[in-house]
Design a protein around this nucleic acid. Structure first.
Length: 491
RNA sequence: GGCCCCAUCGUCUAGCCCGGCCUAGGACACCAGGUUUUCAUCCUGGCGACAGGGGUUCGAAUCCCCUUGGGGUCACCA
């Protein structure tokens, strides 16, 4: 379905990719795909020094990782290159001149000190802090004279009277009274343009038809729409997405939890779970389907269906969803995804893991339905990687073991019984039924052996099947741990 | 404070645009059972919301107004 639709994601490289930004990118991308449009990436690096190459690289990398491929962007170019705003400076200057010449902007000589004082007084008198338009009324001659003396000035946009309205896909029609809109600074005294100006220049030049962004930009929109009018260009359609909120109900920030996409990636949340979850913050497939694919998203996503109210970041649900994705993964993939985390936890090197991959697959298999992120695996399986029989026991595990009166004797007796069978060349998994019979014969309940045994073998209160664990541990380690376990339970 | 936006279970949401099918559906979390060698998974059940008040209408979660509450924004940042 060919179309002229063009949307963009335009992050500023002043920090890591925020999950809110990732969601904005995702919605833009999905909507473009749904409507056969073009999705482009533009870097808004017009900040005075807060922008860095490193952040830009990280943002691109994060979007790539999510699978949000752009059709045009700073790295791959495109028909409207360049896609980095600082590289478009000449064009911005030209357009600013054009607006100035047409009388849409005026020179303002007010100093920072005067503006500060002005705002101070305004807020003291409970007035809206805004520019008072002093320089807008300046006589032409005076302006010329002051420019000639080398006085510094900024270019302010001359907001006309009337009202400004625009179509918002999320909120319907939105109207602002122009008298509420400040004569904002378009070009700084050092000659560099500001965000509100640049964004419109670039959106016009790049043929952007729809602007979907966070709600914090809603109040900027009348300024921008006015700019389109000044340029005599049709304004795009907008869509202001609800904010993602922290537990405190305020804009999601570092205070209330992890905000960077990278944080969740490093914790081992599956990529598709992140996408799925981000969608759920503000959008629903149909109200009953919580888990859905990217294809389903693309087939059904509409900005007009996005919730108007902000969404508190629901970490519990996110973790549940991550677990859903993990359990659905084929074992080989799950193991592969966990491997870097195992290595990072220093349990083994990648080479060591590869050398006994079949063993590692069984390790992963045992935990797949117990973890919700890849990062949860290493601490749960650490006991399988050391030969030491004196590893730490978790408090719960020891408590479970000790609540059985004769735990030590039972374990020691079982150890002796097991030794004979292992000597005879039996595999632990072949001894499952015999072990249960052994327990019954001695008039015991199953936990009376299994809990001390689990503690001795793993030091943990829960986990996979004990006989599977014994095979993964290997006969010498099993023997050593049972022996040492019985000793520790005695003391 | 001005302006703008918003308002369904604790949380994410369906329903709202095109009033009746809503004694308001789903999910997470929580609680209680069941399954299990334990933990987890899985299964069953429970708790739990239309912010309040006025209209309009035969009828309102759905339309209108007010109140209250929450958020956003007020830079030579983006």
């Amino acid at each position: 379905m060919p179309s002229n639709i063009r949307v963009r994601f335009a992050p500023s490289p002043t920090g890591k990719l925020h999950v809110g930004g990732a969601r904005t990118a995702l919605f833009n991308w999905a909507w473009a795909k749904k409507h056969g449009g073009t999705f482009l990436l533009r870097i808004e690096d017009t900040d005075e020094g807060r922008s860095t190459q490193e952040f830009e690289r990280a943002i691109l990398e994060g979007l790539h990782w999510l699978g949000l491929q752009w059709d045009e962007g700073p790295d791959i170019g495109g028909p409207f290159a360049p896609y980095r705003q600082t590289e478009r400076a000449a064009r911005h200057k030209e357009l600013a001149q054009k607006l100035f010449a047409a009388g849409w902007a005026y020179r303002c000589f007010c100093t920072t000190e005067r503006l500060e004082k002005l705002r101070e007084e305004q807020s003291k008198n409970h007035l809206k802090p805004e520019y008072d338009g002093l320089c807008r009324k300046l006589a032409k001659e005076e302006v010329e004279r002051r420019v000639a003396t080398g006085e510094r000035y900024v270019l302010r946009f001359a907001v006309p009277q009337g009202e400004t309205r625009f179509l918002d896909h999320v909120r319907g029609d939105v109207v602002f009274q122009n008298k509420e809109v400040d004569d904002w600074v378009m070009v700084r005294s050092d000659g560099t343009p500001t965000y509100n100006f640049v964004v419109v220049c670039d959106d016009i030049d790049m043929g952007i038809t729809h602007v979907f962004r966070g709600e914090e930009h809603l109040v900027n929109t009348p300024k921008q729409v006015l700019l389109y009018r000044a340029f005599e260009k049709p304004a795009p359609e907008f869509g202001h997405l609800p904010l993602m909120l922290g537990k405190d109900g305020k804009k999601l920030s570092k205070r209330t939890g992890d905000t960077a996409l990278q944080d969740y990636r490093e914790k081992g949340y599956p990529k598709d779970a992140i996408i799925n979850f981000l969608c759920l913050q503000g959008w629903a497939l149909n109200g009953t389907t919580e888990v859905f694919t990217v294809d389903q998203l693309v087939a059904n996503f509409e900005v007009k269906d996005v919730q108007k109210a902000g969404a508190i970041f629901d970490l519990d649900k996110f973790q549940w969803l991550a677990g859903e994705y993990i359990r659905k993964e084929p074992l080989a993939e799950f193991a592969e995804h966990c491997a870097p985390f195992v290595v990072a936890a220093n349990l083994a090197t990648d080479a060591e893991l590869r050398a006994r991959w079949d063993w590692y697959l069984r390790v992963a298999h045992g935990e797949q339905e117990r973890v919700r992120t890849y990062g949860e695996l290493p601490p749960r399986v650490a006991y399988l990687f050391g030969a030491d029989a004196d590893f730490a026991w978790e408090a719960d595990a020891e408590k479970n073991a000790k609540k059985h009166a004769a735990a030590r004797d039972t374990l020691a007796a079982y150890g002796a019984w097991l030794d004979e069978r292992l000597d005879a060349g039996k595999k632990p998994t072949d001894l499952r039924d015999e072990t249960k019979a052994w327990i019954t014969e001695r008039g015991l309940k199953i936990p009376a052996l299994f809990q001390p045994l689990r503690c001795a073998l793993t030091g943990q209160a829960g986990g996979p099947d004990l006989f599977e664990i014994m095979e993964l541990l290997g006969v010498p380690a099993v023997r050593a741990r049972i022996r040492r376990g019985a000793e520790r339970l005695a003391g």
